[in-house]
Design a protein around this nucleic acid. Sequence first.
DNA 1: CACTTAACCCACCAAAATAGTCGGCTATTG
DNA 2: CAATAGCCGACTATTTTGGTGGGTTAAGTG
Lengths: 166, 166
Amino acid sequence: MRLTTKGRYAVTAMLDLAFHSQIKPVTLTDIAARQTISLSYLEQLFARLRRANMVKGIRGPGGGYSLAGKPDEINIADIIAAVDEPIDATKCGGEANCQNEKACLTHDLWMGLSDQIRDYLKGITLAQLLEKHRIQEIAKRQDQDTPQVIEIHRHPELMSNLNDIL
Amino acid sequence: MRLTTKGRYAVTAMLDLAFHSQIKPVTLTDIAARQTISLSYLEQLFARLRRANMVKGIRGPGGGYSLAGKPDEINIADIIAAVDEPIDATKCGGEANCQNEKACLTHDLWMGLSDQIRDYLKGITLAQLLEKHRIQEIAKRQDQDTPQVIEIHRHPELMSNLNDIL
DNA sequence: CACTTAACCCACCAAAATAGTCGGCTATTG
DNA sequence: CAATAGCCGACTATTTTGGTGGGTTAAGTG
């Protein structure tokens, strides 16, 4: 189990999704604005989340993403696993080929730690996070604070106007 | 608490040190050969470990490194903290300035996880690892398997001989 | 139906972190 | 004094991370 900012982004986005997609799907543009993550980077993360069957994408106007399952069925460990490369790709690859095809000294230690972290994160679901007061407050604040940001380069006509002016 | 291969290298090297430095100091060249880590990279890691007061360096022939404390006083969390940059340098810096000076959605989640991991690793000492049968076996095997590797570029005269030949 | 929306896809890019290289200097020992 | 082995710093290659910019495709709406 690797822990990087990538996983953090994914979990944050999924939590935002869980919070806002109760009624209708949520666009990545909205999530990007609220959580200050770049839209294109979100697209990449959600491509993986979709392939891992954690979210559903709905195209067209009024579309966006919604959770593929119930918030109490989606745990944090699975989200992180979905966006990070296959957990064991690095060196100590699940089996003990860490040091020229044999186990490295600390193989067992890292296995134990991985289990520990995975178990902890598997025990936490989106539903549990949603219940927390503090998270609800923060989400509210984000809804208010978020100005309507327009991604200019996605609007060719605005962009060319701008170019005329400059 | 960040978990990277850097920390893994450090812990592996420290465990090797704990295992071999009972009688006399151990050279980084030996550790590099046994654990297949580059010598210069080890030097960098050990510079930090020394500054963090976890190892003592002894110069000159017969020198090398030995542990600064007893194996049962050195825990894994401290080793990792010694080689990785200050834990909170990234985004969610200890305090809640993750999203333009306010807490990001998942701030509390990561705090909880960090504590979890830290506690787990603080509870594991080098002494405990040394007791494990499997680790003893692996260490033995490494002692036998390790051929005497000579770092040629560290031996200018060998290097120039080689240049003459080629 | 044309138009807009927003997912989907891909190739490319910049900054950072990771891992390693190289060369030289310094203390210690024999 | 010569060999050893720590110490130090600058430089480099590779990988990961995060982000751009250009599409295409499916689905709703006037």
